[in-house]
Design a protein around this nucleic acid. Sequence first.
DNA 1: GCATTCTTTGGAAACGTTTCCATACTTTGT
DNA 2: ACAAAGTATGGAAACGTTTCCAAAGAATGC
Lengths: 343, 343
Amino acid sequence: MSLRQPARATIRDVAAQAGVSVSSVSRVMNGEPHISPELHARIMRAVNRLRFEPHSAAQALRSRESKTIGCMVADLSNPLYSEMINGAEEEFQRAGYVLMLAATRHEQDRETAFVSAVRRRRMDGLLLFAGDNAHTDFTGALANLDLPCVAIDRDVPGVPSVRADHRGGGLEITRYLIGLGHRRIALLTGRAALLPSSERLAGYRQAHTEAKLAVDPDLIRPQTQGSSIAFSDVCQLLQGADRPTAIITLGTHMLAGVMDALASNGLRYPDDMSLVCIGDTDLARHATPGISALTWDLDQMGRVAANILLDRIRGGDEARKIRPVYLPTRFILRHSGAKPRAP
Amino acid sequence: MSLRQPARATIRDVAAQAGVSVSSVSRVMNGEPHISPELHARIMRAVNRLRFEPHSAAQALRSRESKTIGCMVADLSNPLYSEMINGAEEEFQRAGYVLMLAATRHEQDRETAFVSAVRRRRMDGLLLFAGDNAHTDFTGALANLDLPCVAIDRDVPGVPSVRADHRGGGLEITRYLIGLGHRRIALLTGRAALLPSSERLAGYRQAHTEAKLAVDPDLIRPQTQGSSIAFSDVCQLLQGADRPTAIITLGTHMLAGVMDALASNGLRYPDDMSLVCIGDTDLARHATPGISALTWDLDQMGRVAANILLDRIRGGDEARKIRPVYLPTRFILRHSGAKPRAP
DNA sequence: GCATTCTTTGGAAACGTTTCCATACTTTGT
DNA sequence: ACAAAGTATGGAAACGTTTCCAAAGAATGC
């Protein structure tokens, strides 16, 4: 019935066509030395004639490497992550690896499921993006893995990581706001269990300590990323007796919710409320007035992580270093900060 | 020197441990019928004791399916794409497939390279995102592939596709602007070779034809996505003698460039220039005034495409349908449009 | 009660590579 | 000139599954 394609050529077909042994074909395909030019030419001719393409499952089975990198991320639709993945993927592609992607949606089940997939597929390495620190089942599964791993903005015991200096960034922007005279600064920093959030919080606390200010726990909103959550968080904060006079918020999605909340409460920034966001976005840049933002190089971060992982896979010198690599953050001052109003 | 992990258990180890044949183990692992409960229990006990996980390369080699989907996208850092991938990945994950991702960066070489990877790895299906229609080498390579494919917002001969109704959307927003009285409408719609761009242009033309207006080719800027390009495009348009009075632009990145260009030329929207953007973003929503936008359901689009592909892989009834599936666009009216000034 | 079909198991041959070992020539060193 | 080392090739055994075939026993039809 269906006219099937001619069966794909195997290495044996190539050997027969060229009149040589399969081992010679294998050697040519893998660019091994000690091959006479004539043999090489003859084999390549057969390869081209038959359009031979080695079956990577067979290669993986025999040679025990799959030329595959697992990449685990909580949320692909978050531009912060996709930007990093984009950078990392370029490096992997250049090195001849293919990315296998899984979005875990912050669910521990999916994390362990992916670790299982990594094992079954004998992936050569694993790149971990920010994920919940409380997922100990997952880190347990990971420890049994004996596989080169690199984490991005995540703290996994025994795994090297690349991190933005969220603590320093949190410190810098909190100092800035305190310097302007703010004493009640709300922090909408995303899920508490994520490393970037907890680090930023640490910086925030440090700035308060330096200025001998107490931290009001009510001002810290460690909620999930999302504009509607930010909206209701801010509304709630504004209802309170002792309002904040400044807000630090994530730039992606949450900032929009914060702006909505301010607008629908008839407040304007920077006069009624100072604003700083984390992660520079088109919105932060082009809102009027422009919103000061903390930023760092996402593409670079992906690339650095990818290269560390590749180096580990190759067993390079760097392979034993576990200490995190930190990338600097940069504060972009715009016009969303002002002295707080006299009460 | 290095304390290696104990070797991973194979199906043979399990069989030995349970005192049965390997074929029985295989049957249990694959949930085949005709297995006595006692055998099943005995084998599962051995599986758990040895922490057996089947080697997927061996499975792929023997069974000729890799449980893997290739996903080719031009630019991962574009939120439009990553949102769609996010939706598609969820569906694939649910069906037990893993996504293999490649970013082609609009380079034909990378496209053909990935097609080759798809062949070698015997992936089970291929999901294609918007890419250059001029890449005929690539579509040629694809035709030889004999593999279930689905395209998203891309026209590949013989391949079913899921598309947003960019033509209808382009028509609607152009009609809207013409209805306001605009006669010179600039169109900054991204690379001309991409299907969404050319479809929008078709809608734009149709609206002009309906209104018996000529289309000035100078107003059509089929440039690559990017804020700096949009910036210089708009500056150039504003220098011309016969300025446009409205601009249609892509929402991601380009809109920011357009806004910059207006601001640095001392123009404000909607009074000096009407604005509509394609793809709703935080910036469009929260700029003041809000910017009217054309939007469609990205997550849904990814899911629909994924399910069509899965159906094709299973050889389902839908398998033979090649006609594109269209998803509707929706026009969100905000405050970025006004009647053009009297000249 | 006997031929037929179904259920349950085991044995062994693939799947398509890589890699180890053997072998027949060439070099090279002294 | 002869041992040792190097180069170029082939043969065959893995790698870890699935699947086809055979076979023995249990259930069914008439």
